[in-house]
């Protein structure tokens, strides 16, 4: 496993509720949030999803990690806004009309396109935030365990690959040091010179990695890989916390289906923004509250030791 990933998961020695959650529960939460954000176009519902995920992230003390995700999200947001605002010519409320530009014509910026861009930007932030939550709550080993039952070849390859990361990094540094001991100077020259000197290092790294792969395969064979049917044992403890989150997700799905059937989650941006009613607001509030259940459980976990022993 990678050094950074290990450090990330060891940052706090004390046990946290998020470390107790089953990877399947978190994966279900991520899937539901992502799919709902793609279903919904109404800004109220997208905002409800965003706030719910943000509050869960906040309660899990992942604000610093989330901020780096949001920075990446902002880059994408700029592209979304650019395409929607400058290149889409829909919408009735014209905010700006440029003189004719050769090849592009007249740039027409409308209020509706601006709102659509903002709405879709919000959708992107919901998706990115949900992935951030998944990334920092689920340990990579948890994902391997999740795959391990049925897709054991993929799980094995994935597990080996994650464990080879630090080894390969150490190999690279070792080969560089050996080359430096032999008088190769990797610093202070032009990029062309440095590239020429790095090529043998990469070649040796590839050779030694493949040699290790060969030994690894021999070792797997010696331990009986591929001989007969494979047995497996998995002990996943579904705690009350997991069960409550799954129930909340089911409630979210039921509520969402009802809202989708009523047409409440759709929002027409063009040609003019549609009006919003109080029903939309309350629907979004309920949806958000159900999705905040992991945050409520985490607060309970922090505050009441009795609850901690049960969750």
């Amino acid at each position: 496993m990678g050094i950074k990933t290990k450090e990330r998961h060891r940052q706090s020695e004390e046990e946290k509720m998020r470390h107790r959650l089953q990877p399947a529960t978190v994966l279900l939460y991520l899937t539901v949030v992502v799919f709902l954000s793609l279903f919904f176009t109404h800004p109220f519902y997208l905002l409800a999803l965003f706030l719910a995920v943000a509050i869960v992230i906040f309660s899990f003390d992942l604000i610093r990690e989330w901020s780096s995700y949001l920075k990446i999200g902002l880059c994408f947001l700029v592209v979304i806004m650019f395409v929607n605002v400058f290149l889409v010519r829909e919408g009735a409320t014209v905010l700006f009309l440029s003189p004719a530009i050769p090849g592009l014509g007249r740039i027409r910026i409308t209020f509706e396109a601006l709102c659509y861009g903002a709405g879709m930007g919000l959708r992107l932030l919901v998706i990115i935030s949900a992935f951030c939550l998944f990334m920092y709550v689920v340990h990579p080993d948890g994902i391997i365990r999740l795959l391990g039952g049925r897709s054991y070849k993929i799980a094995l390859a994935l597990g080996l690959s994650l464990r080879l990361f630090p080894l390969m990094r150490a190999d690279f540094l070792r080969i560089m040091q050996v080359q430096q001991c032999r008088g190769v100077n990797f610093h202070g020259q032009g990029w062309r010179e440095r590239t020429v000197k790095t090529i043998p290092v990469i070649k040796v790294l590839l050779l030694s990695s493949l040699e290790r792969a060969f030994q690894l395969a021999e070792s797997l064979q010696a331990r009986g890989y591929g001989l007969g049917k494979r047995t497996s044992f998995m002990r996943n403890r579904w705690r009350i916390g997991d069960k409550l989150i799954v129930v909340a997700i089911c409630l979210v799905l039921c509520l969402s289906m009802w809202l989708v059937m009523r047409g409440q989650t759709e929002f027409h941006y063009y040609p003019r923004l549609q009006s919003v009613g109080s029903g939309d607001f309350f629907g979004a509030v309920f949806l958000g509250i159900f999705l905040m259940i992991p945050a409520f459980l985490n607060w309970g976990w922090k505050k009441w030791p009795t609850l901690r022993s049960r969750i």
Partner: peptide, 12 residues
């Protein structure tokens, strides 16, 4: 096993 080890190595 060799293919698995190779895939893991090249993936890394």
């Amino acid at each position: 096993a060799k293919e698995i080890a190779l895939i893991a190595t090249m993936t890394t």
